[in-house]
Design a protein around this nucleic acid. Structure first.
Ligand SMILES: [Mn+2]
Ligand SMILES: [Mn+2]
Ligand SMILES: [Zn+2]
Ligand SMILES: [Zn+2]
Lengths: 145, 145
DNA sequence: ATTTGACTTAGAATTATTCTAATTCAGTAT
DNA sequence: ATACTGAATTAGAATAATTCTAAGTCAAAT
């Protein structure tokens, strides 16, 4: 467990302020949880991890904080097939890989500009502001843990 | 409303048989509903449309039929952001466009082989058996109905 | 110090989907 | 033809992630 660094705290404060919201201990802790372990946790998992750092936090607050972070643009929601929503603090354009064996979700870096280029397949009348690319399959040798 | 053509019925029977399941009036009707109006309906919508052709069908059966069709490979599920699952009988590799204004989902044809090529961004240890590409944004002039 | 509105919280409500258990049905065996 | 068997259908209950509600807490601003 590592607390939010000064830099991350700045980023958070800026982004929250920019979207008219306040920095709070709960929001900082939840954000720290996401930055600390980038395995695309669900709200439940975020709750468990946050609770170990801030035992009084509630599930409702975790949902509220996650929503706040998403609306401020610092965190992205990742939805995979009806499963509980996962949360990803990786702001770089990237794809996701969903392992059918373990259910884990991995970030997949993509070449600079590729995500944007994908939108070129769209006919003229469509204008996309987000592009989502998800692979599903298996890992050769599963990362243990 | 148009009933299942002989050709579609064959396709259905083959695919069901291949996955060890039977062709039934309910399954044929649900499949027909999907083929008839390719707007990625939700289970609720499929239920309403099917009910008008077969008033005695139940919601449970619609879910069962949809699951059967998916498991037989004739229909794909399309999940967009926590919304109810949608169903798509378009078997060609294609992308989806989700309109933020109307919530409607459109098929987007992609160049031959492109979906497969996307998997080339994956590091060696990943092996993908499915690739999903979803755009989100707006349509210049919304298709009226 | 008071006020104000944002934030947090526990628990209730919602809702798409899945499950359960009881029929109905179609095909096969007798 | 009749009986048997497992698959398919059905109504309704159960589930579970998320959202909502309403009451309390808190911190900045007056
Ligand atoms: Mn795996
Ligand atoms: Mn639109
Ligand atoms: Zn990610
Ligand atoms: Zn489609």
């Amino acid at each position: 467990m590592r607390l939010l660094g000064q830099e991350d705290k700045e980023t958070l404060a800026m982004a929250l302020d920019h979207s008219g919201q306040r920095a709070t201990p709960q929001r900082e802790t939840v954000f720290g949880v996401l930055l600390d372990q980038r395995d695309h946790p669900t709200a439940d998992e975020v709750y468990a991890r946050t609770k170990s750092r801030m035992p009084t936090i509630s599930m409702a607050t975790v949902y509220n904080c996650l929503e706040t972070l998403v609306s401020s643009g610092l965190v992205k929601q990742v939805n995979i097939e009806r499963e509980p929503t996962r949360y990803c603090p990786n702001l770089a354009p990237h794809a996701h890989f969903h392992c059918r064996d373990t259910g884990r979700v991995y970030d997949v870096p993509v070449p600079e500009g590729m995500m944007k280029d994908l939108a070129k397949v769209l006919p003229g009348e469509y204008s996309a502001d987000s592009v989502e690319l998800v692979f599903r399959g298996h890992l050769a040798k599963e990362k243990t843990k």
